[in-house]
Design a protein around this nucleic acid. Structure first.
Lengths: 246, 246
DNA sequence: TTACATAACTGGTTATAACATGTCATGTCA
DNA sequence: TGACATGACATGTTATAACCAGTTATGTAA
């Protein structure tokens, strides 16, 4: 089950296994997962290791614990929770909306100074640009503008075409699952802007409508940037939730 | 130093002590804090306990660690980081803005259904309403509309008057420090809205300007709600940053 | 049958211990 | 002098062990 000799810590492997069990639906929302001691036996590791895996998963918004009762799978909130990374497709599903995603643009473009610095590539390099439009109940809800290193971009595009054919809503987070890239962390900035004319046209809103803009940089486990993305959400259709500790 | 017999876990006491050392300026941003083993000796506890305290503090955005080098005090970002709770006064200070806060309203009001449910009080109860306007460089930046249980509200108002006399910028987070209330966690919702006429007047912007609205419920250590707050930020002056793990 | 003590779970806290891995200063050898 | 080995010290990972504190089912006594 676990690789005891490899370089990957056991608790990370266990966390990944938890993530998979939840993503695959094997463990359902609000369902109790095996107890810490049970997982110790199952993976043949100490309780500290299991607890660290669970703590990480809890931190990522995948689980919650109740003392004396057990550990449970966290059900994502309506809207979008900021603890747990939830893809567009999943968010729609939770909200009970039918949805779809269209590809507005899929192209290779030269970098600018900002992009080369963020994606950590040369000024002469090219990057892949993917622009998606997400619909909920046939209404544009979010406009994604992503930039990837070239190799990643080509794979992303392939995966996107695949989802497109299936006519299922998706965002780039859904696509990572299709690739062998393990996205591990995201840096995000939230701000409100008045919608420009171009975006207004794309999203079918009046110019000046308040939009929630989330700028993200996605990193792999080894802290290499793999995506720079700007997401513009139609304000009245999308909120973000967050729990913070002091 | 620590209370070994009390009900408060040692690692929480240590975390509080870390928080105080940072808040008081004893430990400055980017300064290295004593090593784990040093803290073990100093507090006379095991390394696990110290590590848990540090992990909590890191999670709250107070510290960061570099393997092989040490643990350091995190310097809050310009803008507002979403990992670490940063008060309005502190945010201004980091941004290098001079600022101030005025009290728009300080009154006792009856609850409505939403408030009674959130603050967990009876429908006949009254609550304290405090409305603040935060300025940066003489320009309105944020409008806070807070509601507290009555007893808390009176203390908050006193503390606010005190800050007002000192002519120092503040938000309710600054005020908690003055009271004996240990705010421990916050639930927040982020959304973008077009500014209404009333708010436009208060914040001296054009009607329809995009505003970032953050709705917060503040909880004490024992998970009792102590504040319901709506904060409206002038969009071009305020952004929020967040790092998320998967 | 009901009420209460208890046992058998759950996660929460803490100690001790060892070794791995990353960083850096120091000292040695070419 | 410069390159490299080494040791001291930082955090990272993991095991074993014990006890505390809630939750729940069970079984016993009134």
């Amino acid at each position: 089950m676990l690789n005891f000799d490899g370089p990957t810590p056991l608790y990370i492997q266990i966390k990944d296994s938890i993530r998979k069990a939840i993503a695959s639906g094997e463990w359902k929302p609000n369902e109790q997962i095996p107890s810490e001691r049970e997982l110790c036996k199952r993976f043949n590791v100490s309780r500290i290791t299991v607890r660290q895996a669970i703590a990480d998963a809890e931190n990522a918004g995948l689980l919650y614990k109740i003392q004396g009762k057990g550990t449970f799978v966290k059900a994502p909130k309506i809207g979008q929770g900021l603890t747990r990374i939830t893809s567009f497709g999943k968010t729609l599903q939770i909200s009970g909306l039918s949805g779809s995603t269209t590809i507005l643009e899929s192209q290779v473009v030269p970098v600018n100074l900002q992009l080369s610095s963020i994606l950590n590539c040369g000024l002469e390099d090219q990057v892949y640009n993917l622009q998606l439009l997400g619909y909920g109940n046939d209404e544009p809800i979010v406009y994604y503008n992503s930039f990837f290193p070239l190799a990643v971009g080509y794979s992303m595009n392939e995966a996107a075409q695949k989802y497109l054919k299936l006519n299922r809503p998706f965002s780039t987070y859904d696509l990572y699952g299709e690739l062998d890239i393990a996205a591990d962390a995201v840096d995000q900035t939230f701000e409100a802007v008045n919608c420009t004319q171009e975006v207004a046209k794309i999203m079918k809103v009046r110019e000046g409508t308040a939009m929630l803009v989330v700028t993200s940089v996605v990193y792999t486990r080894d802290s290499k940037p793999v995506e720079f993305k700007t997401a513009m959400y139609k304000a009245d259709k999308y909120k973000f939730h967050l729990k913070r500790n002091m």
